[in-house]
Design a protein around this nucleic acid. Sequence first.
DNA 1: AAGCTTTTCGCAAACGTTTGCGAAAAGCTT
DNA 2: AAGCTTTTCGCAAACGTTTGCGAAAAGCTT
Lengths: 342, 342
Amino acid sequence: MLHSLIQLLNLLMSEVTLKKLAGMLQLSISTVSRALKDHPDISIETKTKVKELSVLLDYEPNTFAINLRSNHCKEFGIIVPTITNDFYQSFISSLENEVRQYGYSLIILQSGDDPIIELANLKLCKQNRMAGIFVSITSKTTDINNFLKLDEHHIPVIFFDKVPSFEACNKVCVADEAAADMAAKELMLKKKKNILSIFGNPELLITQKRLKSFEDTVSGYGLSTQLYIHYALSSDEAREITMNSFKKVIKPDAIFCMTDEILMGVMKAIQQLELRTPQDVGVIAISDGFKPTLYYPEITYIETSGFKLAKLAFARMLACLGGSSYAQELRIESIVVSGGSL
Amino acid sequence: MLHSLIQLLNLLMSEVTLKKLAGMLQLSISTVSRALKDHPDISIETKTKVKELSVLLDYEPNTFAINLRSNHCKEFGIIVPTITNDFYQSFISSLENEVRQYGYSLIILQSGDDPIIELANLKLCKQNRMAGIFVSITSKTTDINNFLKLDEHHIPVIFFDKVPSFEACNKVCVADEAAADMAAKELMLKKKKNILSIFGNPELLITQKRLKSFEDTVSGYGLSTQLYIHYALSSDEAREITMNSFKKVIKPDAIFCMTDEILMGVMKAIQQLELRTPQDVGVIAISDGFKPTLYYPEITYIETSGFKLAKLAFARMLACLGGSSYAQELRIESIVVSGGSL
DNA sequence: AAGCTTTTCGCAAACGTTTGCGAAAAGCTT
DNA sequence: AAGCTTTTCGCAAACGTTTGCGAAAAGCTT
C-alpha cells in the first residue's frame, strides 16, 4: 500500500508515460499501448485496468514521440505577405476553424512580401515536416520551384488568392475575371460614362486578369464609355488619385475599386471632397465584404469571400492528403452585393 | 566509384539522416553529429568533410527527433477569441515577426469566445509541449486554474489585453485606466457638455476599468458635464445607440468610443445622419490606430498599440523562458493622436 | 489425453537525435 | 624508451512511441 503510494507520488512529480503506466500495472509497454488503442489482442479486463489508470493519472501521449515514429505531424503552415488584411484575416480565421475540426493546427508565417523571407518560411515548413502548406505568394515571387519541391516531399502545397501563373500546381482563387466582369456590367447597367478605375499592383497576375476582363466587358457594350485606368499600391495612393481626378474638368461619375485597400482611400477622398454617393458619384468595389459595411450608404461590391475560399482550399488539401495527386485550379464564384452606393 | 554513385542515388531517394552521412563517410553517427555542431573533440579535417557532404546532400536535422530528445519545441501558441479584430491582428502580426527572429513559430488558436474551445486549445498546447503561450481570455472565462497548471509544467503563460483579475499571473495590457482618463481629459479640454459614452462588454475587466476611470476623470473636473453611458456588444448596436441619441431633444456634442468596433458603428450613424465632425459632433476613440485613418477628418484617438503590446509580451515571454518566475503585470502607456474629429 | 486453435501478452527493434564515457592513437615529457 | 597527456573518435543508452513476431497459457477438438 505504502509502496504504491510512493509510486504514485513519483509519477505526479514527472510526466506520465507508457513506461510508467506499465510499471505500475505490471504490464509491458506494448500491452499498455495496445490497450489504450483498443487493439483486439488485449483482453477486456486489461483494457479497463489500463484505461482507468491512464485517466486517473491524466496520461497524455507524447506528441514528439508520435511524430518521430510516424514521420509526420498534424500541423499546416500558411504563408502570406501579411496577415493585416481583411481578406487574409477572414481566410485564416476560417481556415483555422476548419483545420481544428480535423485535429490539425495552423502555423502562420508572414513573408512581409519579401521573397527571401518567404523562402526561409518555406524551408521551415519543410524542416518541420508539416502536413501541408497554404501559400499566397509575394508580388515579387518569380521562381516557384522551391514550392514544387515540397510536393516531391509529399507535402501538398495549395496556392490561394495570389497564385503563380505556372500551371501544374494546386490553386484556389476567387473568380478574378468573373468578378471584374460583374463589376463592369453593374457600371454599364447604371449607364456610367466616365469611370475612374483603380487597380492594384500591376505586376500581380490577379491585377492583370481583372484589368483585362474589366476592359473587355466595358468595350463589349460598345458605348462611349471613358475609362480612366490607374494603379494604386496603397490606400493613400488611391486617395490621391481620387482627389486629382475630381480636379479635372471632366469628373468621374463612378469609381471602380479593385481591392478593399483602394476602396478605403477612395472613400476618404470622397468624404474630404464632401461628395455624396450615389448622387454625386457611384462607387463599386471588389471586396471581402467587411469594409463596404462601414459606410453609409453601404458600398455595392462584388464579393470575394475569404471564408468560402478557405473552405475550398482546405477541401483541396484534404483531397491531396488523401492521395489526389493531379494538380487542379479551383475557383469560387462571386456575387454582387448591392449596398446603395451605385 | 560506381558504388558511391549508387549510394548517392539511394540517398536522394529518401531522407538524409546522420546515419546515412555516417555510412558514406565511414564515420560514426556521433562523430557526424558533433562535427556538424562544431564540437571541439572533432578534428578540422573531419569537420570539413562532414560539413561539405551535408551541404551537398542538403542535410536537414529531423525536428521530431530533436524535439523528442530535448523534450521541448520551438513553437508558441496564441489563443484569442477571434483573429478578425484589428487589435489582435496587429498584435499577432507583430508577435509573429518577433518570434521568427528568435527561431520560433507561432500557432494560432481561436476560441470563438467559447470557454470550452478555449480549454481544448489549452490542452492542445500542453500536449504539444509548446514553449509558451499567449492568451487573451474569453469574456466568459472564470476559472483560470487550467492556465496556471501549465505554468507548473514549465510552459509560461502570458495573458494580454483581456486578462483575468487574478493577480499571481503574467499580464501585459494597454493602460486601460490611463487611456480612458486621457480620452476624458481631451473631452473636458474641448468643454464638451453632453457626451454619448459607448463602452464594450460590461462583463470584461477591461470595460469596468475604463468606465470607472472615465467617469472619475470627468467628475473630477467638477463641471456640469452630462454623461450618457451605453454598452454596445457589436458595431451595429453602437450604430443604433447613436441613431437614437440624436433623436432626443438634447443631442450629444461629443461621442466617446471605447473600441474600434464601436467607432465603426458610430461613424456609420454619423454618415447616415449627415453630421459633420467636428462641427456638429466631436468624436474620440480608444483604438489601435488603423480604423481612425479611414475617415476624413481622421478620428482623434488614444492609441493602444497592438504592435507595442506584442513586443512587450514577447519580451516578458523571453524573460520567463530565461528563468524569471515571479509573475508580473506590465502595461504600455498610451498617447493621444489628434486627427481633427474633436 | 494428445494435439490443435485461440487468446493474451511481451521482446525487441525502429524512428533520428544527443551525449557521457571509454578507448585507441598520437604526441609529448623526462 | 617508458610513461604521461592530448587528440580524436566510437559505443551505447536514452527520449516515448508503435508494431511484427514469437511464445506461453488457456480452451478446444476428436
